[in-house]
Amino acid sequence: MSAARHAAWALVPAGALLVGALGAAASCAGCGSDFDPGSRVAGTRVLAVQADRPYAHPGEQVTLTALGYDTQGRALEWGWTTCLDPDSTAVTACLLRLADDLARGAPPPFQAGSASTATVTVPTDALSRLPEAARGSAYLGVLIVTCPGHIDLTGKTGDVPLACVDASGRALALDEFEIGVKRVFVRAQDRNANPVIASVTWDGAPWAESDVKEVSPCASATENRYDRCDGEKHTLAAHVTADSFESGVDETGAAFTEQLVIQHYATEGIFEYDARVASSPESGWVARAGASGKTVTLWLVARDDRGGMSWATRQVRVR
């Protein structure tokens, strides 16, 4: 984006936003590379955290449920803490807030345990404490640490102000455990319902959760390229209900139409598309030769762009 800063005083934000919003997607993490796809679950991953009230009102309790998995079957310790009104709507702001609090010796309440659910309460002044203009972006951040060991708030992982120590006493690297943030959006009146997955299909036919499919691996799919497979391919899809597509005018007077996407995850195999729009959710999937004899778990997570989500889990046995 080239623009003359002095005079095109209204034009530059668009370019900056375009770069900011699409830059990551365009210059991208993982595209056109040799990296394993993010859809392949390895080690400890949390694929989704659902809030029973994605849009909560001040003073309300919100229950959060995490979809976590460890491919090595290790027991996970979950840590939960909150941050109200961080400086940025980027999730990293909550981690910076935690680092600041720890640095000044005033750690926030931190709940740790084996439960993958937690309940948080939205402060009653969560909106009233903000200037009117900023209330449309109000949220309560919930920072979640998922550790295949024990969480150590006195340790560090690089610049991250906590550590995860496994059973051998080794402090794990950042990509060996997980830190993440779920936003609970605070509104005076508005609500947002989590999308509802009405059905999952396998090659166009309904696929019940109890139905473990059996497939042959695609020997030619040795790389992370779906299109390189010339063997057995299957199509799966998560279909959401029509009500899941919400639209209207929010309490700030802004019109909205939800974006709804389906993201795919699996412990093995290659998806044709790691993500699809919910209105066109079909994606191919193949098992790689290395998965022979294994049972693969697949997750289909539906998300809307206002913090709502739900998921479905299925399994496939690879011959």
Partner: peptide
């Protein structure tokens, strides 16, 4: 002008997903 956007990224700001970030209109 009319806009509905999340905050403009700061110079050098690390990438953060755009999806589901609060926007202002």
């Amino acid at each position: 002008g009319a806009l509905k956007v999340p905050p403009i990224p700061r110079e050098g700001e690390a990438p953060s997903p755009y999806f589901a970030r609060p926007t202002s209109s």
